[in-house]
Deep mutational scan, measured.
Amino acid sequence: VTVHVNRYTYHFDNPEEAEKFAREMAKRLNMTVEIHGNTLKVE
């Protein structure tokens, strides 16, 4: 599972951890999480 935050890319083996990380980053940056299959984008 890949998480994109701005120009950074993070890889996770565990989808739940990836989503938790993405949501935490989105909250911190006041952004939203978009899910595209195995890719989560924080925008």
Rank of each mutant, 00 (worst) to 15 (best):
T2P: 02
Y10C: 07
I35N: 05
N30F: 05
E19V: 11
D13M: 09
K20R: 12
M31Q: 04
D13S: 10
R28K: 12
A18Q: 00
H11I: 10
E43H: 14
M25D: 00
E34D: 06
I35T: 07
N6S: 10
A22K: 01
K27W: 08
R7I: 08
E34M: 14
M31Y: 06
H4T: 12
P15I: 15
G37Y: 10
T32M: 10
E19K: 09
T39V: 14
H36M: 11
A22E: 00
Y10E: 01
Y10N: 00
P15F: 15
E19G: 05
H36N: 12
A22P: 00
V1R: 05
H11D: 03
V3Y: 00
T39D: 09
H36F: 12
N38W: 03
R28T: 06
H36Y: 12
H4G: 02
T32A: 08
N30W: 04
F21V: 01
N30M: 06
N38F: 04
Y8E: 12
I35A: 08
M31E: 02
N14R: 06
V5C: 13
V3P: 01
A26P: 01
V33I: 09
I35F: 12
R28E: 07
E16L: 11
E16R: 10
H11L: 09
E24I: 11
N14S: 12
R28P: 01
V1D: 01
V33K: 01
V42H: 04
V5D: 02
M25W: 12
V5T: 03
V42A: 03
E19M: 15
V42N: 04
V5H: 04
V42D: 04
M31K: 04
A22G: 02
T2E: 07
T2C: 13
M25P: 00
G37K: 06
N14Y: 06
K27D: 10
T9I: 14
Y8D: 10
G37V: 06
K41Q: 08
H11E: 05
K20H: 09
K27I: 12
N6T: 07
A26Q: 03
F12I: 01
E16P: 04
N14E: 06
Y8S: 09
E16Y: 12
P15H: 14
E17F: 06
N14H: 07
Y10H: 03
K27E: 12
P15D: 05
L40R: 03
R7A: 12
V5E: 01
A18V: 01
Y10T: 01
R23D: 05
A26N: 02
N14C: 10
V5Y: 08
N38C: 13
A18D: 00
E16I: 12
H11P: 02
V1I: 13
N30E: 05
E16K: 11
N14A: 06
E43Y: 15
Y10V: 04
V1W: 15
L40Y: 10
G37H: 06
T9G: 03
G37M: 05
H11T: 09
T32W: 05
R23I: 08
V3I: 03
E34Y: 14
R7Y: 10
Y10W: 10
E43C: 15
H4N: 05
E16M: 11
Y8R: 13
E17L: 10
A22N: 00
H4E: 10
N30I: 02
T2Y: 11
T39I: 14
E19A: 09
N14K: 07
L40K: 03
A26S: 04
E34K: 15
T9E: 07
A26Y: 02
H36S: 11
L29C: 15
E16Q: 11
E43L: 15
E43R: 14
K20M: 11
E24A: 13
F21C: 05
T9C: 13
M31L: 12
L40E: 04
K41W: 15
N6R: 08
H11W: 14
K41R: 14
P15C: 15
L40G: 04
A18S: 01
V1C: 14
F21H: 01
T9M: 11
R7L: 08
Y8G: 05
R7W: 10
N6I: 10
D13F: 07
E16G: 08
T2W: 13
A18T: 00
H36K: 10
D13H: 07
L29A: 04
N38T: 08
M31I: 06
I35V: 12
T39P: 03
Y8I: 13
N14W: 05
N6H: 13
R23T: 07
Y8T: 12
Y8P: 00
T32H: 11
M25H: 03
L29E: 04
M25Q: 05
N6L: 14
K20Q: 11
V5M: 06
R23W: 14
V1A: 09
E17G: 03
G37I: 06
M25G: 00
G37R: 04
T2K: 08
E34S: 15
E17N: 06
H4R: 11
V1Y: 15
I35C: 13
F12P: 00
E16F: 11
H11Q: 07
T39C: 15
R23P: 00
A18H: 00
E17A: 11
M25F: 05
T9P: 04
K27H: 11
F12T: 00
N6G: 15
D13Y: 07
A26V: 02
E19T: 09
N6Q: 11
V33W: 05
E34C: 14
K27R: 13
E43W: 13
P15G: 07
N38I: 05
D13T: 12
E43K: 14
E34G: 07
V42Y: 03
E17R: 06
K41V: 15
R7E: 12
T32G: 05
F21T: 00
E34I: 15
F21Q: 00
M31T: 13
E24Q: 11
M25V: 12
H36E: 10
T9A: 09
E24K: 12
R7P: 05
P15Q: 12
Y8M: 13
N30Q: 07
L29G: 05
K20N: 09
K27S: 11
A18N: 00
R23Y: 13
M25A: 06
E24H: 09
N30C: 13
E17S: 08
I35G: 05
N30P: 01
M31V: 09
L29V: 03
H4F: 07
